[in-house]
């Protein structure tokens, strides 16, 4: 299935032209990714954040190979323009994501206000020290819906146990 109408119309092309051309696009994204590595949560235009997210996650994949790996170091050296952050990438960020298999970033879209009509977004690495931007979902175990479904679940499990007992005997 086509993932969106846009992708169907563009016939699957997925890169945005940022800054007017290939080298400029990567330069912009390099700066965004460097900022993200430094601060772990940054605000930028939605287009830049969306494109940078892919590279930020791939960078972590490479960083997981370790700083002794020549290829990984080369990629990190290109993508991180401020060289004091390269040790941070390998020693702080990569170990944080050892148990993750991808999706190391979160992208939040910011509200469009009259002061700021441009589509802005916040890109952050998971596990960053700031308080979370989204409200934590609260459980309401005593709401009617939950009580009813809880009852359903208990009946279902009881039935299963009864069936097991019957088959055993």
């Amino acid at each position: 299935m086509r993932l969106s109408l846009m992708l169907l119309i563009t016939h699957g092309k997925r890169q945005r032209k940022l800054g007017g051309g290939k080298p400029q696009r990567l330069n912009i994204l390099r700066r965004v990714v460097t900022g993200l590595v430094r601060h772990e949560r940054i605000e930028s235009t939605y287009a830049q954040c969306d494109e940078a997210q892919f590279y930020a996650e791939k960078l972590i994949d490479y960083a997981k190979l370790g700083n002794t790996n020549a290829g990984a170091m080369r990629i990190a050296d290109y993508w991180i323009t401020e060289k004091d952050l390269i040790p941070k990438l390998f020693e702080t960020l990569a170990p944080r994501f050892t148990n993750y298999d991808g999706r190391y970033c979160r992208l939040h879209r910011l509200p469009v206000t009259t002061q700021n009509t441009r589509d802005m977004a916040v890109l952050e690495y998971k596990g960053n020290p700031y308080p979370s931007l989204r409200p934590t979902p609260k459980n309401h175990p005593n709401s009617i819906a939950n009580i009813l479904v809880e009852g359903l679940r208990q009946d279902y499990e009881k039935k299963k146990i009864d069936l097991k007992d019957e088959s055993a005997t």
Partner: peptide, 11 residues
């Protein structure tokens, strides 16, 4: 949510 940039590009 984000349709662009998430999946690998046609090579």
């Amino acid at each position: 949510m984000a349709a662009f940039g998430r999946v690998l590009l046609r090579s």
